[in-house]
Write a protein that binds this DNA or RNA. Structure first.
Lengths: 333, 333
DNA sequence: CCTTCTCGTGAGAGCGCTCCCACGTCTATC
DNA sequence: GATAGACGTGGGAGCGCTCTCACGAGAAGG
């Protein structure tokens, strides 16, 4: 990077071998004798040689990059504004540990999304992880480049790593019901988000099963949305004894709203979230939530890509687990 | 990516021009007549041609990648576990909008950090943004590759974009003092973190200025640490009327700890944080905090790199601003 | 009408590496 | 002792692109 870096040519010359032999030693491929090996290694050390990854990629056709595509349809759901993406990042990085592959981040905005997708699909990489990309864009991407894995429920053909959102939402309501709560409202995410759709379905299934009334409100997956929704819900149904917020950020807002009306959490109104993100531990009281194994899912998607085997329609499912804290009653210690 | 993609050669052949002319049109460089221009463009469209960025980078020597290096010295401060990094990401992505440059993320662990640094320094990129990299590693990186910008206070020679941590911490205490609080404790970050060191210095400066006693405790920049620190502080100094937590996550823990002792926030103990991250809006009551302009700083660092002008010792300073919410008293609406 | 300048165009040399293939040399086999 | 096989080694083509340079045609000037 500074001045002109030594090339493999320089190494070969210094070691008195051919470029081919130097390459073999550097990639520790078989077919080089011990004496030459050490001479090359010495030359590498002496020159401080580091292979040029760009040239390597071009010559070998092997790729060293995985793309992480984050959809940015809404400012509040952008990668910087939502804790979700940090976890995706961590999971992907974990799977990449030790493998010489780099993670590249892309944020695709609503406008111009299709063009961006096409350009990225054409780019030569190991593959792409789709975080919160809508099904239509996902299938477009898939048909253009094949090597993609979605982290959210998506078009049937697109390979995906999915959480059991429906079961998870059902379990959340079941937990509340088991605690004796009977007026259980839900705050839902945006309709364009497939996870939000599934969680809503789970809530409705539970409500039907337990013979409760469906008390729903939109909250847009944001803290502000959750706050406003809880306030509206409480005004219209003052007898609510529990709220299921389909993401933690909304649950945090809900707790604040409930408290602001003079009610106590969990004594008067129990609150359960979904995700188990930062937000869950920052609330007061700490939030009972359904843990989405985001890191594990992102890691699985990464490994799938690395292995090269992403068959059309592939589905890998992850269970969602209850994490009891204090917002639904004393947490078991 | 799927099958063999068309190359510029194919485009040139189809358009009946040379590779050089095709390249000119594709990069819309001057020196191509209108008739040929449109013929090439048509060929591009017909073949669905997309340039191979790897080949481009190799041939031109121009780079299309910026590295974001996140140090991972401690599990609780890892990119996935701390809200800070999401904001860095957002800032960098914002600055990259419209520029055809990709962001690459690296997490460097304590062990093997030096080697990773060397390898990355050798890699051909536009440059690197150092988030929370220790001064010694930063200067090593800098001496190896030159094109780096640190986001935290660092070695003198290394270019950096810095927040006014000292002044910010001072202002936080000043705010508390202005509210009539006199027993103001602080919960500090880890000693290896340069931001933590500066914030501590700011606290001490304020304490001296206002003639208060220095009541400090470590909290490791984590929620758990903040919780434990507040509890310890309250036990040893039951008369505390304010806590300055040098990051929001610790402040969130502190609020929970204070509440658990039966005290009220802000009536009995006022709490002020630092950062203005997710955590600040999730606490109950919402957290008064010092806003660190992380997004702006990351964007500035990115632009510096893009412009190519990172002079040794460069310093770009950012002010830290008070964001009054409810944890220090009724927020001015 | 010849020179000079301009400008569009294509040939071709790389960028730094990988990898196939041909060429020894050395040992095993009949 | 001739032949086959194994193995280490280097030559060189080529990955897909950019970019310099030389060339030829047309416009401008004396």
């Amino acid at each position: 990077m500074i001045g002109s870096r030594p090339t493999i040519e320089d190494v070969a010359r210094l070691a008195g071998v051919s470029r081919a032999t130097a390459s073999r030693v550097i990639n520790n491929a078989p077919g080089a004798s011990e004496p030459l090996r050490s001479r090359v290694q010495q030359a590498v050390a002496q020159l401080g040689y580091q292979p040029n990854e760009t040239a390597r990629a071009l010559a070998s056709g092997r790729q060293r990059t995985i793309d992480l595509i984050a959809a940015d349809y809404h400012p509040d759901l952008s990668p910087g504004a939502h804790p979700y993406y940090s976890r995706v990042l961590t999971g992907a990085m974990t799977a990449l540990e030790g493998v010489n592959v780099q993670l590249r981040i892309h944020v695709v905005a609503r406008k111009g999304a299709a063009e961006r997708i096409d350009a990225m699909a054409a780019d030569t990489t190991v593959g792409a992880i789709l975080a919160n990309v809508t099904p239509d864009l996902a299938s477009r991407f898939y048909s253009r480049c094949r090597k993609v894995v979605s982290l959210v429920p998506t078009a049937a053909s697109v390979p995906a790593v999915e959480a059991e959102n429906i079961n998870g939402a059902y379990a959340a309501v079941e937990h509340l019901h088991g605690l004796g709560r009977r007026r259980i409202a839900a705050i839902h995410g945006p309709g364009f988000n497939t996870c939000a759709i599934d969680r809503r379905a789970g809530y409705q299934k539970a409500v039907n099963t337990f013979g409760l009334s469906d008390i729903s409100h939109g909250g847009g997956f944001t803290r502000e949305g959750g706050y406003a929704a809880a306030l509206a819900l409480l005004t219209e149904h003052p007898d609510l004894d529990a709220i299921f917020a389909t993401c933690d950020l909304m649950a945090a807002g809900a707790i604040q709203a409930i408290t602001s009306t003079g009610r106590r959490v969990p004594e008067d109104v129990a609150v359960i979230g979904f995700d188990d993100s930062f937000a869950a531990i920052c609330t007061n009281p700490p939030l009972t939530t359904m843990r989405l194994p985001t890191e594990e899912m992102a890691a699985a998607a990464t490994r799938l890509l690395l292995a090269g085997g992403v068959a059309s329609g592939l589905r890998q499912r992850f269970a969602v687990q209850l994490v009891p804290r204090e917002s639904t009653g004393r947490a078991p210690k």
